[in-house]
């Protein structure tokens, strides 16, 4: 199963980015292969609108089943993620990627 984290960097010890559409990076963890990859989303700064749907497209591309983030996606992105059945966990905005994965594993993150 693939899990996407919204983060300020690309590593396990990177700080989480609480934003979804405007997160600096998407860190993707593949639980089967134990591989960690990332996508640099920083060019979203130049976009006035549509950051949410754009990010939701990334989730579709990665075929991620779980999204872990801080504040939760906005209305447009939520519609897309709901349609593909992504499980969204929020409240990890102040943690690192590693800590938010652990928090998700032991069930202490809230479902969006």
């Amino acid at each position: 199963m693939k899990i996407v984290f919204t983060a300020e960097g690309k590593k396990w010890d990177s700080k989480m980015d609480p934003r979804f559409g405007r997160a600096k990076y998407y860190v993707v963890y593949n639980e089967e292969t134990k591989e960690l990859e990332s996508f640099d989303n920083s060019d979203v700064e130049g976009e006035a609108h549509g950051a949410g749907p754009k990010a939701a497209r990334k989730i579709i591309e990665y075929k991620a089943e779980v999204l872990i983030t801080g504040n939760g996606p906005g209305g447009n992105a939520s519609k897309v993620l709901e349609k593909i059945g992504t499980k969204i966990f929020i409240g990890a905005g102040d943690l690192t990627v590693k800590d938010s994965y652990e928090a998700y594993k032991n069930g202490s993150l809230n479902k969006f």
């Binding site: 976009e47 609108h49 549509g50 950051a51 949410g52 749907p53 754009k54 939701a56 497209r57 579709i60 519609k79 897309v80 349609k83 593909i84």
Partner: peptide, 12 residues
Amino acid sequence: YHAVIQVVDTIM
């Protein structure tokens, strides 16, 4: 503008 997105078998 990310106003059109293909979501599996649907165009949103």
